[in-house]
Design a protein around this nucleic acid. Structure first.
Ligand SMILES: [Zn+2]
Ligand SMILES: [Zn+2]
Ligand SMILES: [Zn+2]
Ligand SMILES: [Zn+2]
Lengths: 125, 125
DNA sequence: TTTATTATTGCAACATTGTTGCAATAAGAG
DNA sequence: CTCTTATTGCAACAATGTTGCAATAATAAA
């Protein structure tokens, strides 16, 4: 299935690049001022994930955020970094810090979803 | 506000003790076979959290799980441990392992919500 | 340029999860 | 036993995410 370049897809990709942070569907819908349907936004974001352009994380609020992949290889994706959500400015960031966890004997890990919420440098000041 | 002991409250508390793992509202509703209303289950669970008996965590599926507090002081609660969700048997556990993360300069942490999903010892075998 | 193919979109409908308001019920004190 | 009010059940709602389907439009082919 070959991808097509569309206004919605471009706008959302640009937003993700410009934001340099993770965005949720509702954040994108707001910035797009309702020009694009909710469903389309979800579909575009999911497509980015399928294509290895972005990754999806479930926040501690229980909703999805999407962020462009930075340090992933084209083939090999690893999203085992911490995510930070600022309780004041709402910004969500992928942190450099990798998650290190040793599981009990016999356990195996398939995926990791780690969040820290608090106040970012701007909002702490 | 003084608490009262009710069948629903007791049943749910016993389930949490017996399970020795974290449960979600729908798991509890199933085991209770619809004898108790959804809303009541949520309210009982939230009450446990208010009373410092349990803690609530948001899973990587985006829904809430509730687990009895084990290593919390009566006054001082710390829920900075990892949680594990088995993709096969659905069991959710509080792990002993504490979350260790160093934030960028100027950032401050208020809360932590860390999940590993994969296969538990039983299901890996 | 024009036409044909089909990826993408918008809309309605639905599923799941969690909360709130309010009247009815029942736990526990006196 | 009676009274107070914490707790429950039910209806209604909000938020988030998905699916089906017909209409639209990006791209390739003619
Ligand atoms: Zn990636
Ligand atoms: Zn990330
Ligand atoms: Zn606790
Ligand atoms: Zn826990």
């Amino acid at each position: 299935m070959k991808r097509r370049s569309t206004p919605a897809q471009q706008a959302i990709l640009n937003m993700l690049k410009a934001a340099d942070s993770a965005l949720s569907q509702d954040m994108i819908e707001q910035q797009l001022k309702g020009e694009t349907d909710r469903v389309t936004i979800y579909r575009v974001l999911n497509r980015f994930c399928e294509d290895g352009l972005a990754h999806r994380i479930t926040s501690d609020e229980g909703k999805f955020y999407f962020a462009l992949c930075k340090n992933c290889q084209q083939q090999h994706h690893t999203h085992d970094h911490f995510h930070f959500r600022c309780l004041s400015c709402q910004k969500v960031e992928c942190l450099e810090e990798k998650v290190k966890v040793s599981l009990p004997l016999g356990y195996s890990a398939a995926n990791v979803n780690c969040w820290v919420s608090g106040y970012c440098a701007n909002c702490s000041a």
